[in-house]
Simulated scan of single mutants.
Amino acid sequence: MNVDLFDFDLPTDRIALRPAAPRDAARMLVLDGDATRDAGVADLPGLLRRGDLLVFNDTRVIPAQLDGRRGDAKIGATLHKREGPRRWRAFVRNARRLRDGDVIDFGNGVSAAAVDREEDGSYALDFAGDEPVELLLERAGHMPLPPYIAGKRPTDERDAADYQTMFAAEPGAVAAPTAALHFTPALMAALAAAGIGHATLTLHVGAGTFLPVKATDTADHRMHAEWGRIDAATADRLNAVRTAGGRVIAVGTTSLRLIESATDADGVIRPFDGDTSIFITPGYRFRGIDGLMSNFHLPRSTLFMLVSALMGRERMQAAYAHAIAKGYRFYSYGDASLLLP
Protein backbone atom coordinates (compact mmCIF):
# COMPACT_ATOMS: atom_id res chain seq x y z
CA MET A 1 0.00 0.00 0.00
CA ASN A 2 1.10 3.56 -0.64
CA VAL A 3 2.45 5.11 2.56
CA ASP A 4 0.72 8.40 1.68
CA LEU A 5 -2.60 6.71 2.55
CA PHE A 6 -1.55 6.85 6.20
CA ASP A 7 -0.69 10.53 6.28
CA PHE A 8 -2.64 13.20 8.15
CA ASP A 9 -2.05 16.73 9.41
CA LEU A 10 -0.94 16.70 13.05
CA PRO A 11 -0.29 20.11 14.64
CA THR A 12 2.98 19.97 16.55
CA ASP A 13 1.32 21.33 19.70
CA ARG A 14 -0.70 18.09 19.93
CA ILE A 15 2.45 16.09 20.82
CA ALA A 16 2.47 15.84 24.61
CA LEU A 17 5.71 16.79 26.36
CA ARG A 18 4.63 15.53 29.81
CA PRO A 19 2.19 12.81 30.88
CA ALA A 20 -1.14 13.43 32.56
CA ALA A 21 -1.09 13.54 36.36
CA PRO A 22 -2.26 11.30 37.83
CA ARG A 23 -1.56 8.85 35.02
CA ASP A 24 -5.11 7.54 34.78
CA ALA A 25 -6.46 11.10 34.37
CA ALA A 26 -5.64 10.93 30.64
CA ARG A 27 -8.47 11.11 28.13
CA MET A 28 -9.45 8.08 26.06
CA LEU A 29 -11.23 7.89 22.71
CA VAL A 30 -13.33 4.72 22.51
CA LEU A 31 -14.08 3.01 19.20
CA ASP A 32 -16.44 0.13 20.03
CA GLY A 33 -17.74 -1.52 16.88
CA ASP A 34 -19.28 1.32 14.88
CA ALA A 35 -19.70 3.60 17.91
CA THR A 36 -17.30 6.39 18.87
CA ARG A 37 -17.29 8.16 22.24
CA ASP A 38 -15.06 10.40 24.34
CA ALA A 39 -14.12 8.97 27.73
CA GLY A 40 -11.24 8.80 30.17
CA VAL A 41 -8.75 6.10 31.09
CA ALA A 42 -10.36 5.91 34.55
CA ASP A 43 -13.59 4.79 32.84
CA LEU A 44 -11.93 1.60 31.58
CA PRO A 45 -13.50 -0.81 34.14
CA GLY A 46 -16.96 0.14 32.87
CA LEU A 47 -15.98 -0.12 29.21
CA LEU A 48 -14.80 -3.73 29.32
CA ARG A 49 -16.66 -6.92 30.23
CA ARG A 50 -16.28 -9.25 33.19
CA GLY A 51 -13.99 -12.04 32.02
CA ASP A 52 -11.91 -9.85 29.69
CA LEU A 53 -8.13 -9.91 30.11
CA LEU A 54 -5.69 -7.03 29.65
CA VAL A 55 -2.17 -7.98 28.52
CA PHE A 56 0.73 -5.73 29.54
CA ASN A 57 4.34 -5.63 28.44
CA ASP A 58 6.61 -5.83 31.52
CA THR A 59 9.78 -4.64 29.78
CA ARG A 60 11.82 -2.00 31.58
CA VAL A 61 13.45 0.91 29.76
CA ILE A 62 17.22 1.14 30.19
CA PRO A 63 19.27 4.37 29.90
CA ALA A 64 20.14 3.55 26.31
CA GLN A 65 21.02 7.02 25.01
CA LEU A 66 24.77 7.66 25.04
CA ASP A 67 26.85 10.71 24.14
CA GLY A 68 30.57 10.30 23.57
CA ARG A 69 33.63 11.17 21.56
CA ARG A 70 36.00 9.50 19.12
CA GLY A 71 38.96 11.82 19.16
CA ASP A 72 37.58 15.32 18.55
CA ALA A 73 34.34 14.05 16.97
CA LYS A 74 31.10 14.02 18.94
CA ILE A 75 29.34 10.66 18.59
CA GLY A 76 25.83 9.83 19.80
CA ALA A 77 24.44 6.31 20.09
CA THR A 78 20.99 4.90 20.75
CA LEU A 79 21.07 1.23 21.64
CA HIS A 80 18.24 -0.75 20.08
CA LYS A 81 18.90 -4.50 20.37
CA ARG A 82 21.14 -6.69 22.47
CA GLU A 83 23.29 -9.05 20.40
CA GLY A 84 25.45 -10.58 23.12
CA PRO A 85 26.56 -10.24 26.75
CA ARG A 86 28.61 -7.12 25.96
CA ARG A 87 27.36 -6.22 22.49
CA TRP A 88 24.46 -3.95 21.55
CA ARG A 89 23.35 -2.89 18.09
CA ALA A 90 23.02 0.90 18.00
CA PHE A 91 21.92 3.71 15.74
CA VAL A 92 24.80 6.18 15.65
CA ARG A 93 24.78 9.93 15.10
CA ASN A 94 27.76 11.36 13.21
CA ALA A 95 28.60 7.81 12.05
CA ARG A 96 30.54 9.20 9.10
CA ARG A 97 33.32 9.98 11.60
CA LEU A 98 33.67 6.31 12.56
CA ARG A 99 35.64 3.45 11.08
CA ASP A 100 35.27 -0.20 11.99
CA GLY A 101 37.06 -0.84 15.28
CA ASP A 102 37.10 2.78 16.47
CA VAL A 103 36.63 3.18 20.21
CA ILE A 104 34.03 5.66 21.47
CA ASP A 105 34.58 7.19 24.91
CA PHE A 106 31.23 7.78 26.64
CA GLY A 107 32.76 9.17 29.83
CA ASN A 108 32.58 7.89 33.41
CA GLY A 109 34.90 5.04 32.52
CA VAL A 110 32.59 3.69 29.81
CA SER A 111 33.82 2.97 26.28
CA ALA A 112 32.90 0.70 23.39
CA ALA A 113 34.37 -0.35 20.06
CA ALA A 114 32.16 0.27 17.02
CA VAL A 115 32.20 -2.75 14.71
CA ASP A 116 30.12 -4.57 12.10
CA ARG A 117 28.42 -1.64 10.38
CA GLU A 118 25.18 -2.60 8.61
CA GLU A 119 23.45 -1.13 5.56
CA ASP A 120 21.05 0.86 7.74
CA GLY A 121 24.05 2.71 9.22
CA SER A 122 23.88 1.00 12.60
CA TYR A 123 26.96 -0.33 14.39
CA ALA A 124 27.48 -3.06 16.94
CA LEU A 125 29.01 -1.61 20.10
CA ASP A 126 31.32 -3.93 22.06
CA PHE A 127 31.54 -2.51 25.59
CA ALA A 128 34.95 -2.69 27.27
CA GLY A 129 35.64 -4.08 30.73
CA ASP A 130 34.15 -6.72 32.99
CA GLU A 131 31.30 -4.83 34.65
CA PRO A 132 27.78 -5.73 33.50
CA VAL A 133 26.72 -3.46 30.67
CA GLU A 134 23.62 -2.49 32.68
CA LEU A 135 25.88 -0.87 35.30
CA LEU A 136 27.85 0.96 32.62
CA LEU A 137 24.64 2.37 31.16
CA GLU A 138 23.49 3.54 34.59
CA ARG A 139 26.73 5.55 34.81
CA ALA A 140 26.95 6.97 31.31
CA GLY A 141 23.51 6.67 29.68
CA HIS A 142 20.26 8.57 29.95
CA MET A 143 16.61 7.89 29.24
CA PRO A 144 15.99 7.58 25.47
CA LEU A 145 12.96 9.82 25.04
CA PRO A 146 11.40 9.77 21.56
CA PRO A 147 12.92 12.38 19.24
CA TYR A 148 9.54 14.14 18.99
CA ILE A 149 9.85 14.97 22.70
CA ALA A 150 13.63 15.18 23.09
CA GLY A 151 13.78 17.69 20.24
CA LYS A 152 11.58 20.09 22.21
CA ARG A 153 13.05 19.79 25.71
CA PRO A 154 15.94 18.04 27.48
CA THR A 155 15.49 14.79 29.38
CA ASP A 156 15.30 15.39 33.13
CA GLU A 157 14.90 13.52 36.41
CA ARG A 158 11.12 13.34 36.06
CA ASP A 159 11.47 11.25 32.92
CA ALA A 160 13.28 8.50 34.82
CA ALA A 161 9.96 7.76 36.54
CA ASP A 162 7.48 9.10 33.98
CA TYR A 163 8.85 6.91 31.18
CA GLN A 164 8.51 3.62 33.09
CA THR A 165 5.25 1.72 33.47
CA MET A 166 4.10 0.30 36.80
CA PHE A 167 4.71 -3.17 35.32
CA ALA A 168 8.37 -2.54 34.36
CA ALA A 169 10.38 -5.55 35.59
CA GLU A 170 12.57 -6.97 32.80
CA PRO A 171 15.37 -4.55 31.75
CA GLY A 172 16.07 -4.36 28.04
CA ALA A 173 13.80 -1.85 26.27
CA VAL A 174 14.97 1.39 24.73
CA ALA A 175 11.43 2.71 24.39
CA ALA A 176 8.52 2.39 26.81
CA PRO A 177 5.35 0.42 26.03
CA THR A 178 3.54 3.71 26.42
CA ALA A 179 -0.11 2.61 26.54
CA ALA A 180 0.64 1.07 29.94
CA LEU A 181 1.92 4.40 31.27
CA HIS A 182 -1.74 5.28 31.96
CA PHE A 183 -2.21 2.60 34.61
CA THR A 184 -2.07 3.11 38.38
CA PRO A 185 -2.57 0.74 41.34
CA ALA A 186 -5.98 2.34 41.92
CA LEU A 187 -7.08 1.65 38.35
CA MET A 188 -5.82 -1.93 38.53
CA ALA A 189 -7.81 -2.47 41.74
CA ALA A 190 -10.95 -1.11 40.04
CA LEU A 191 -10.41 -3.41 37.06
CA ALA A 192 -10.00 -6.43 39.34
CA ALA A 193 -13.18 -5.52 41.22
CA ALA A 194 -15.01 -5.43 37.86
CA GLY A 195 -13.85 -8.96 37.06
CA ILE A 196 -11.25 -7.90 34.49
CA GLY A 197 -7.95 -9.78 34.75
CA HIS A 198 -4.47 -9.04 33.57
CA ALA A 199 -1.37 -10.88 32.41
CA THR A 200 2.14 -9.87 31.37
CA LEU A 201 4.57 -10.77 28.60
CA THR A 202 7.94 -9.30 27.65
CA LEU A 203 8.91 -7.52 24.43
CA HIS A 204 12.07 -5.43 24.57
CA VAL A 205 11.05 -2.46 22.46
CA GLY A 206 13.81 -1.23 20.14
CA ALA A 207 14.64 2.25 18.88
CA GLY A 208 13.38 1.12 15.48
CA THR A 209 9.91 2.02 16.71
CA PHE A 210 10.89 5.70 16.25
CA LEU A 211 12.20 5.34 12.71
CA PRO A 212 10.15 7.00 9.98
CA VAL A 213 8.88 4.96 7.05
CA LYS A 214 11.05 6.18 4.18
CA ALA A 215 9.66 3.80 1.55
CA THR A 216 6.80 4.90 -0.67
CA ASP A 217 5.13 1.49 -0.45
CA THR A 218 4.60 -0.48 2.76
CA ALA A 219 5.91 -3.62 1.03
CA ASP A 220 9.36 -2.04 0.89
CA HIS A 221 9.64 -1.11 4.58
CA ARG A 222 11.90 -3.23 6.77
CA MET A 223 11.04 -3.66 10.46
CA HIS A 224 13.86 -4.12 12.96
CA ALA A 225 13.65 -7.33 14.98
CA GLU A 226 12.84 -7.20 18.69
CA TRP A 227 13.16 -9.97 21.27
CA GLY A 228 10.10 -11.19 23.13
CA ARG A 229 8.84 -13.97 25.37
CA ILE A 230 5.46 -15.45 26.28
CA ASP A 231 5.79 -18.35 28.72
CA ALA A 232 3.62 -21.45 28.57
CA ALA A 233 1.49 -20.50 31.60
CA THR A 234 0.64 -17.11 30.09
CA ALA A 235 -0.16 -18.61 26.68
CA ASP A 236 -2.46 -21.14 28.36
CA ARG A 237 -4.21 -18.41 30.32
CA LEU A 238 -4.82 -16.26 27.25
CA ASN A 239 -6.25 -19.24 25.37
CA ALA A 240 -8.48 -20.15 28.32
CA VAL A 241 -9.92 -16.62 28.47
CA ARG A 242 -10.93 -16.74 24.81
CA THR A 243 -12.33 -20.26 25.14
CA ALA A 244 -14.52 -19.06 28.02
CA GLY A 245 -15.86 -16.18 25.92
CA GLY A 246 -13.67 -13.41 27.28
CA ARG A 247 -11.64 -11.04 25.19
CA VAL A 248 -7.87 -10.65 25.11
CA ILE A 249 -7.17 -6.90 25.02
CA ALA A 250 -3.58 -5.96 24.27
CA VAL A 251 -2.35 -2.90 26.14
CA GLY A 252 -0.06 -1.34 23.58
CA THR A 253 1.06 -2.26 20.12
CA THR A 254 4.08 -4.08 21.56
CA SER A 255 1.86 -6.56 23.42
CA LEU A 256 -0.30 -6.95 20.33
CA ARG A 257 2.62 -7.65 17.99
CA LEU A 258 4.08 -10.29 20.27
CA ILE A 259 0.74 -12.05 20.78
CA GLU A 260 0.13 -12.08 17.04
CA SER A 261 3.66 -13.42 16.48
CA ALA A 262 2.93 -16.26 18.90
CA THR A 263 -0.49 -17.22 17.51
CA ASP A 264 -0.85 -20.03 15.01
CA ALA A 265 -3.19 -20.23 12.02
CA ASP A 266 -5.91 -21.82 14.17
CA GLY A 267 -5.92 -18.92 16.63
CA VAL A 268 -4.04 -20.77 19.38
CA ILE A 269 -1.48 -18.66 21.26
CA ARG A 270 1.74 -20.64 21.68
CA PRO A 271 4.71 -20.06 24.01
CA PHE A 272 7.23 -17.78 22.30
CA ASP A 273 10.89 -16.98 22.95
CA GLY A 274 12.83 -15.20 20.22
CA ASP A 275 12.85 -12.34 17.74
CA THR A 276 9.88 -10.89 15.92
CA SER A 277 9.83 -8.35 13.09
CA ILE A 278 6.10 -8.60 12.37
CA PHE A 279 4.75 -5.66 10.33
CA ILE A 280 0.97 -5.32 10.44
CA THR A 281 -0.82 -3.35 7.73
CA PRO A 282 -4.42 -3.34 6.42
CA GLY A 283 -5.37 -6.76 5.08
CA TYR A 284 -3.78 -8.57 8.02
CA ARG A 285 -6.06 -11.10 9.75
CA PHE A 286 -5.79 -10.80 13.53
CA ARG A 287 -5.65 -14.18 15.24
CA GLY A 288 -4.72 -13.72 18.90
CA ILE A 289 -6.23 -10.45 20.16
CA ASP A 290 -9.75 -9.07 20.38
CA GLY A 291 -8.98 -5.43 21.05
CA LEU A 292 -6.27 -2.89 21.72
CA MET A 293 -5.64 -0.01 24.07
CA SER A 294 -3.09 2.32 22.51
CA ASN A 295 -1.81 5.87 22.49
CA PHE A 296 -2.24 8.11 19.44
CA HIS A 297 0.44 7.59 16.81
CA LEU A 298 2.22 9.79 14.32
CA PRO A 299 1.35 10.21 10.63
CA ARG A 300 2.84 7.65 8.22
CA SER A 301 4.09 5.52 11.12
CA THR A 302 4.03 1.72 11.26
CA LEU A 303 1.89 2.02 14.39
CA PHE A 304 -0.81 4.06 12.64
CA MET A 305 -0.75 1.39 9.94
CA LEU A 306 -1.30 -1.25 12.63
CA VAL A 307 -4.36 0.44 14.16
CA SER A 308 -5.69 1.00 10.63
CA ALA A 309 -5.38 -2.74 10.05
CA LEU A 310 -7.39 -3.40 13.20
CA MET A 311 -10.22 -0.88 12.73
CA GLY A 312 -10.05 0.13 9.06
CA ARG A 313 -8.00 2.94 7.54
CA GLU A 314 -10.90 5.31 6.85
CA ARG A 315 -12.29 4.72 10.35
CA MET A 316 -8.96 5.56 11.94
CA GLN A 317 -8.44 8.62 9.77
CA ALA A 318 -11.84 9.90 10.93
CA ALA A 319 -11.11 9.00 14.57
CA TYR A 320 -7.77 10.82 14.51
CA ALA A 321 -9.36 13.87 12.89
CA HIS A 322 -11.90 13.86 15.75
CA ALA A 323 -9.10 13.51 18.31
CA ILE A 324 -7.16 16.43 16.83
CA ALA A 325 -10.28 18.62 16.71
CA LYS A 326 -11.13 17.76 20.33
CA GLY A 327 -7.64 18.50 21.63
CA TYR A 328 -6.44 14.99 22.45
CA ARG A 329 -2.73 14.73 23.20
CA PHE A 330 -0.59 12.52 20.94
CA TYR A 331 2.30 10.11 21.21
CA SER A 332 4.25 8.63 24.12
CA TYR A 333 3.06 10.97 26.88
CA GLY A 334 -0.32 11.60 25.31
CA ASP A 335 -3.88 10.32 25.67
CA ALA A 336 -5.24 6.86 24.91
CA SER A 337 -7.62 5.09 22.57
CA LEU A 338 -9.57 1.88 23.16
CA LEU A 339 -10.11 -0.01 19.91
CA LEU A 340 -12.69 -2.80 19.94
CA PRO A 341 -13.43 -4.14 16.43
Rank of each mutant, 00 (worst) to 15 (best):
T165G: 13
S122P: 15
T155A: 15
R158V: 01
D156G: 15
E138K: 04
E138V: 04
R86C: 02
I104D: 06
R139F: 06
P144A: 14
D159S: 06
D116T: 13
E157T: 03
G151E: 13
P146Q: 14
P171M: 05
E83L: 15
K74C: 00
E134L: 15
L145F: 08
E119I: 09
G129I: 12
Y123S: 14
H142I: 10
D120Y: 07
F127V: 05
D162V: 14
P147Y: 10
G151D: 12
R87V: 12
S111K: 08
R89G: 07
V133C: 09
P147L: 11
A73I: 00
E138N: 09
D130T: 13
D120G: 12
D130E: 15
V174P: 07
P171E: 09
E118N: 14
L145E: 12
R117T: 06
E134P: 02
A160M: 04
E138C: 06
P85Q: 09
P85G: 08
D72N: 07
D156K: 07
K81T: 07
G151V: 07
G71Q: 10
Q164K: 00
D162N: 14
Q164S: 09
R87A: 14
D72T: 03
L145G: 12
V174R: 03
A113F: 02
D100I: 02
D159Q: 03
P147F: 10
G84D: 06
A161R: 13
I104Y: 04
D126K: 11
Y148Q: 15
W88H: 07
D72P: 04
R86G: 08
P154Q: 11
P171A: 11
L125V: 08
D156S: 10
R117A: 12
R70V: 01
G109M: 02
E170N: 12
P85Y: 02
A175K: 01
K81D: 12
E131N: 07
V174N: 12
L137K: 13
A112G: 04
E119Q: 12
A160N: 04
E118P: 00
G151P: 00
L135F: 10
D100T: 06
D116I: 01
A77Q: 10
Y148L: 12
R87E: 14
P144R: 15
F106D: 05
R82M: 08
Y123M: 14
R93M: 10
D105C: 14
G84N: 06
A128L: 05
R93L: 08
A114K: 04
Y123P: 03
R139W: 03
D102M: 05
V115C: 12
P144Y: 08
A150W: 05
L145Y: 06
G107Y: 02
R82Q: 15
P171T: 07
S122H: 15
G141Y: 02
R86I: 09
V103C: 13
P144H: 13
D130Y: 08
E131S: 14
W88G: 04
R82H: 04
E157M: 03
R70F: 08
L145A: 14
G151H: 08
A112T: 05
P171L: 08
A173E: 11
G121A: 13
P171C: 07
R89D: 14
A128V: 07
A150Y: 11
G71D: 06
G107W: 00
V115F: 01
A95W: 00
M166Y: 06
G71M: 09
A114P: 00
F167T: 09
H142R: 13
G151Y: 04
W88P: 12
Y163T: 03
F127M: 08
